[in-house]
């Protein structure tokens, strides 16, 4: 398939790229092109101009500084997978990258592109919701920071202005006892999710959940934050308590009218399923997708807990 006619621009600096976006009509930013080029071939996108930011130096670094992990616009999924800091401190990001498309696509596909594309079927948006990431947009007037909750508006719609480029994603550094996981059900390698769930939990020293982030992939017209599920977990103590100490804790729990960990997780998982708004397609019916959201949420919570040292 031959893409439609367009003109191609390869600016050598961010300033040049922003100037091009300002003066060209109907321009689309391209980084790795792994979503945009297939869309062009299918005529789902027909921009008059493509501004390829792939040659701009200085946008391909992953660094942890100022209390955040900073992912530049040109960081590829492969670079993220090979980054030692990510593997050690942000396993949820590694989970997410590993289930996107296939290794060849990931050699070119970028994290910022995955997010800026605004496709609710993409995997990083849910993870960014769980991690409460900040999007750094650079435009003609300089930089502005957009919270992830204000970023996604619907199918391929984000808060980015046509003249702006998503130049960096900032992820708050995890606390001492925190952990996350991303689980995706897919029919085959590289497919979009039937359902995907990202969970990030932060615990205090007694194992109580102080902060929960839950994002859902491909279960509505935009990436979804499962707020009620987050609320169900926050304040609960979910650590598996074993032996004599565990038995005492469980008995105490019963007398104080508390729920046990399994009940809390089940309630949160059901709340996540209730937050979904999937459409029936070849990946399954509405009921099936909702149920998979429930099952994956429970599993992701348990995995996040175990990674948090629970």
């Amino acid at each position: 398939m031959i893409p439609p006619q367009f003109d191609y621009h390869a600016p050598g600096s961010l300033e040049e790229a922003l100037a091009l976006l300002g003066e060209l009509d109907d321009a689309k930013v391209m980084s790795g092109g792994q979503s945009l080029l297939p869309m062009l071939k299918l005529r789902l996108a027909t921009p008059a101009n493509i501004v390829d930011i792939g040659r701009i130096p200085g946008l391909d670094s992953i660094t942890e500084s100022g209390g955040s992990l900073r992912i530049g616009a040109l960081v590829t999924e492969t670079a993220l997978e090979e980054n030692a800091t990510v593997a050690e401190r942000y396993p949820i990001l590694l989970d997410t990258a590993k289930v996107i498309a296939d290794p060849l696509v990931r050699n070119r596909a970028t994290i910022c592109g995955n997010v800026a594309h605004g496709d609710p079927a993409n995997d990083h948006p849910a993870t960014m919701l769980a991690l409460r990431a900040q999007m750094v947009a650079t435009g003609p007037k300089g930089e502005r920071t957009i919270g992830v909750d204000d970023f996604f508006h619907g199918l391929f719609m984000t808060s980015l202005d046509p003249g702006e480029i998503l130049t960096e994603i900032r992820i708050p550094a995890p606390g001492e006892r925190s952990g996350g996981a991303y689980l995706k059900l897919e029919r085959k390698v590289g497919d979009y999710a039937v359902a995907g769930v990202a969970v990030q939990l932060e615990l205090d020293k007694n194992g109580k959940v102080t902060r929960a982030g839950i994002g859902l992939t491909n279960l509505g017209f935009a990436p979804i934050r499962a707020s009620a599920a987050e609320k169900a977990l926050t304040g609960a103590t979910l650590l598996e308590q074993r032996g004599f100490k565990g038995a005492i804790a469980r008995v105490r729990g019963i007398f104080s009218g508390g729920l046990d960990a399994d009940e809390v997780i089940a309630a949160a998982a059901q709340a996540a399923a209730d937050a979904t708004d999937p459409v029936a397609d070849r990946r399954g019916s509405v009921e099936y997708k909702r149920n998979m959201a429930r099952v994956l949420t429970a599993r992701a919570i348990r995995q996040a807990l175990s990674r948090a040292g629970g």
Binding site: Y8, G33, D52, V105, R108
Partner: peptide, 14 residues
């Protein structure tokens, strides 16, 4: 780097 050449523009490979 192994790359799917149906999903790269020739100009990108300049």
């Amino acid at each position: 780097v192994p790359t799917k050449s149906c999903t790269v523009l020739a100009v990108q490979a300049d």
